[in-house]
């Protein structure tokens, strides 16, 4: 994508190349932020529909502008820094959360060749960035100098570290079938219709991945870091105004990211479900799959009650870890036995 924009200039210069990079970043980030605003609206509407309420319906047609109104409200409020807080880290934490939620999008392929960077280690990059996400939360919990925030931060750190392990094993299973860490290669390996998509052969680990993704993004039923019934709002209890908004945006950007990763790994990325529909641009399918993933996240939020903390830890370490480890061995065994391994590059 960077190269495509760079070639538009027609002149070669390092400065123009930097401009091309910045332009392609903007081309991803601006639509992403707008879609985050609508994702919040979508989430609230689904949640309301499940509970037979109307949801946001006042600001704009069908309440479509609700998120923008909320954003404006947060923007004009005062940022309160608690007296005992560590000011620098307190303000750094939401920025780190927000930045990390954005930079992971650099490797997501929206269509063939439509990504900022076609990294050879794309999947590892996403794993690395999502493992950094815990810092924003643990730093905010510590810097707030409040017991609720600290407990929320510690809970979240333990939770994210635990579920990363099973996400890692799920990725190993998929990577064995693809033979590459490049996300474009993962999509290309699933081309030719929905019967080639990985959610069919890898259905059990797809379920593990989905549940771990819920835990990784601190979504209900695993939203213990902010469990409002016990911790008020957990790590974000002391935050107000834009600092809170950055946490909120980062959280939803992360959920969309997880939906995008799920679309790439298990639903064939930009590929059309049947080859006859190939004339529709790939980006449409990719966005539709991300929206579908988000819809599943929202439905889970609507009808699953929150876990108790020890149950959450038990599920992560005593159920998912052995299960995903077993599936790595199982799929590796099947692939070796039936000679299904991708050819050695």
């Amino acid at each position: 994508m960077v190269e495509a924009i760079y070639s538009l200039f027609g002149v070669e210069s390092p400065l123009l190349y930097l401009t091309a990079i910045v332009l392609s970043i903007l081309a991803i980030v601006l639509p992403l932020l707008i879609s985050v605003a609508f994702a919040v609206y979508f989430d609230r509407k689904i949640w309301a529909a499940v509970q037979m309420r109307r949801g946001p319906n006042v600001v704009g047609p069908f309440g479509l502008l609700q998120s923008f109104a909320d954003g404006l409200k947060l923007f004009v409020k005062e940022t309160v820094v608690p007296a005992g807080a560590n000011k620098f880290i307190f303000l750094m934490a939401p920025m780190i959360t927000f930045t990390l939620a954005l930079i992971a999008w650099a490797v997501i392929p929206f269509d063939a060749g439509m990504m900022i960077s076609d990294l050879n280690v794309g999947i590892l990059y996403i794993l690395a960035i999502s493992s950094l996400g815990v810092y924003g939360i643990i730093m905010s919990g510590w810097a707030s100098n409040s017991r609720y925030a600290f407990l929320g931060g510690l809970r979240s750190a333990a939770q994210m570290v635990s579920y990363e392990v099973s996400i890692g094993f799920v990725l190993v299973c998929v990577l064995m079938a693809v033979g590459s860490l490049n996300l474009s290669d993962v999509v290309n390996a699933q081309s030719g219709g929905f019967w080639n998509w990985y959610f069919i052969p890898f259905f059990p680990i797809f379920i593990i991945f989905f549940i771990s993704a819920l835990a990784e993004t601190n979504r209900p039923p695993f939203d213990l870091p902010e469990a409002e019934a016990e911790l008020v709002a957990g790590y974000q209890v002391e935050y107000s105004s834009m600092a809170f908004a950055l946490f909120f945006l980062g959280e939803y950007a992360n959920i969309l990211l997880m939906s995008a990763v799920m679309a790439v790994l298990f639903f064939g990325g930009w590929e059309a479900p049947i080859p006859a529909l190939d004339f529709i641009p790939g980006i449409f399918w990719m966005l539709a799959k991300i929206a579908f993933g988000f819809w599943m996240f929202a439905m889970v939020k609507a009808f699953v009650p929150r876990y108790r903390y020890d149950q959450l830890m038990r599920l992560g370490w005593k159920v998912f870890l052995p299960l995903s480890l077993f599936f790595v061995v199982f799929y590796a065994g099947i692939m070796v036995a039936f000679d299904l391994l991708p050819s050695q590059g």
Binding site: V121, S131, L132, V134
Partner: peptide, 25 residues
Amino acid sequence: AEFLAMLLVIVYVGAVAVLFLFVVM
């Protein structure tokens, strides 16, 4: 060495330093 770089971030930053931070806090 992008593979080593990612491993460094995942293992040291994502796991080891989190435990450090835990203990120190």
